[in-house]
């Protein structure tokens, strides 16, 4: 028996919004430690890794490990039927071929449930090596989304250059060249507005704008985003999900032909 309840459906809606543009389907691996999903996008350029810890749920029970393959478009349809403040419960029997998603209004006067067919997805699980990153940048997630959106107008690629002075995003195309530099912030009143850089050595990497823009669909989940970079390895873009876990996106760098 698997059962997981969250106090607010809005979190699950935001998580789905953060992955459904990259992935059409995914397997939710459930164990007593929580729920994990790992999947490559269709073109196999990026990887999504979602972790939701069991202690972040209002109720969590998982007697036996189960893997639930879901069509994310179908799940998004179901979540559209929830009000943001509804309780949401996911339930499945051991070895079931369906999952039930139930929404309850705060006053318990409206209860709706949706049974969704599960899929057998033959997805390979990739091992992500432990990496000492040369640069780790933390910045407001809205700022990162804005930069990715703005620079995508000028080029398919953005160059991210990180030094101890700051981080610079550059896009060059037919129009010309766009540069956006962010310096580390001094003392700021609100931690969520700060830009911080933890640099071991400077790094310059090039990434495809369309994937970075897809990752920014996770912006509503977190006020800050963390970019971890190292020469010749995938970028990690991480959004923490408060008290519940995180979503990490890995993106292979572009290299010269």
């Amino acid at each position: 028996m698997f059962e997981a309840r969250l106090g607010q459906a809005t979190i699950l809606k935001k998580i789905l919004d953060a992955i459904k543009d990259l992935l059409t389907e995914g397997t939710f691996d459930c164990s007593d430690s929580g729920i994990q999903l790992q999947a490559m996008d269709n073109s196999h350029v990026s990887l999504v890794s979602l972790t939701l810890r069991s202690d972040g749920f209002d109720k969590f029970r998982c007697d036996r490990n189960i893997s639930m393959g879901m069509n994310l478009g179908s799940m998004a349809k179901i979540l559209k039927c929830a009000n943001n403040e509804d309780n949401v419960t996911m339930k499945a029997q051991d070895n079931a071929d369906t999952v039930t998603i139930m929404f309850e209004s705060a006053n318990q006067e409206k209860v709706s449930d949706y049974e969704m067919k599960l899929m057998n997805l033959d997805q390979e699980h990739l091992g992500i090596p432990e990496t000492e990153y040369s640069c780790v940048v933390r910045m407001p997630s809205m700022e990162f989304a804005r930069i990715c959106r703005d620079l995508a107008q000028f080029s398919e690629s953005v160059v991210i250059c990180c030094t101890k002075e700051g981080v610079k995003f550059t896009a060059s195309g037919d129009v010309g060249t766009a540069n956006i530099k962010l310096a580390q912030t001094g003392s700021v009143d609100k931690e969520e507005e700060s830009v911080s850089i933890d640099m071991q050595e400077p790094v310059t990497l090039t990434f495809a704008c369309r994937y970075l823009n897809a990752f920014t669909k996770a912006t509503p989940l977190s006020t800050q985003v963390q970019l971890s970079m190292c020469a010749d390895v995938p970028l990690v873009v991480e959004y923490a999900i408060k008290d519940l876990g995180y979503i990490r996106y890995y993106l292979a760098p572009k290299i010269e032909d």
Partner: peptide, 12 residues
């Protein structure tokens, strides 16, 4: 050139 993510991360 864009490499795939599975160039870096191998199946386990």
């Amino acid at each position: 050139m864009q490499r795939g993510i599975n160039t870096y991360f191998k199946p386990v």
